[in-house]
């Protein structure tokens, strides 16, 4: 197991294509971040998230030969996850909402620092109460703004990666993030997240 830990994603893809049993190394590598991502972006319970993740992994496995090696594997798998979440939300005809900034996300929120690169807003979230308000505030954002904020600030993806995941130009991603931050700031004031703001 340990020797596989140091292998790159691409090497694991090649191993998985040789023997499906090796696919579990990739799954184990991506299970925690994808579960977190799903719970942040979709209104799903843990069970639903796991079911959805199974579908995502099956889809990833089926499409392994189509993986574009010029992309990062993580961008590719997030793209598939994103598409599945959108499809799932469409199927259920429910609005995709940000939910669980709880449980597994708590640690992120506790250490949680969301700093605007421009430096004009800086939120430090320490309590469960603020995380709930943060969740509510995020829920108020339109999907297109929420997803870029989550990918940028929670999943820590670069503009290029977000561009590859959402299949939008980097310029559009930058604009969306900018607008999302402004909209979030307005909402945050309403949800009294502003009081948590650091000077």
């Amino acid at each position: 197991m340990d020797k596989y830990k140091n292998l790159s994603d691409l090497q694991l893809v090649q191993l998985s294509l040789k023997d499906h049993q090796n696919f579990h190394y990739l799954m184990e590598r991506y299970e925690p971040p994808l579960l977190r991502y799903m719970k942040r972006t979709a209104s799903v319970t843990r069970e639903e998230a796991e079911d959805l993740l199974q579908d995502i992994f099956i889809k990833v496995y089926r499409n392994l030969n189509g993986f574009d090696q010029k992309l990062r594997f993580s961008s590719w798998i997030y793209r598939i996850a994103h598409n599945e979440i959108v499809n799932q939300a469409y199927k259920k005809k429910v609005r995709s909402v940000t939910t669980s900034l709880n449980e597994s996300n708590e640690h992120l929120l506790k250490q949680g620092e969301w700093t605007e690169e421009s430096g004009d807003a800086h939120f430090e979230l320490e309590s469960k109460d603020s995380s709930e308000r943060m969740r509510d505030a995020l829920m108020k954002l339109p999907d297109k703004y929420r997803e870029v904020l989550i990918l940028k600030f929670f999943e820590d993806k670069s503009y290029r990666e977000i561009s590859a995941i959402l299949r939008k130009p980097e310029g559009t991603i930058a604009t969306l993030i900018n607008r999302a931050k402004k909209k979030f700031k307005k909402i945050a004031i309403r949800y009294q997240l502003e009081s948590e703001r650091q000077p």
Partner: peptide
């Protein structure tokens, strides 16, 4: 191996 990856591998097989 996690429970989820076991389930997926089982389904694949």
């Amino acid at each position: 191996m996690t429970r989820l990856s076991q389930t997926v591998l089982k389904k694949i097989e």
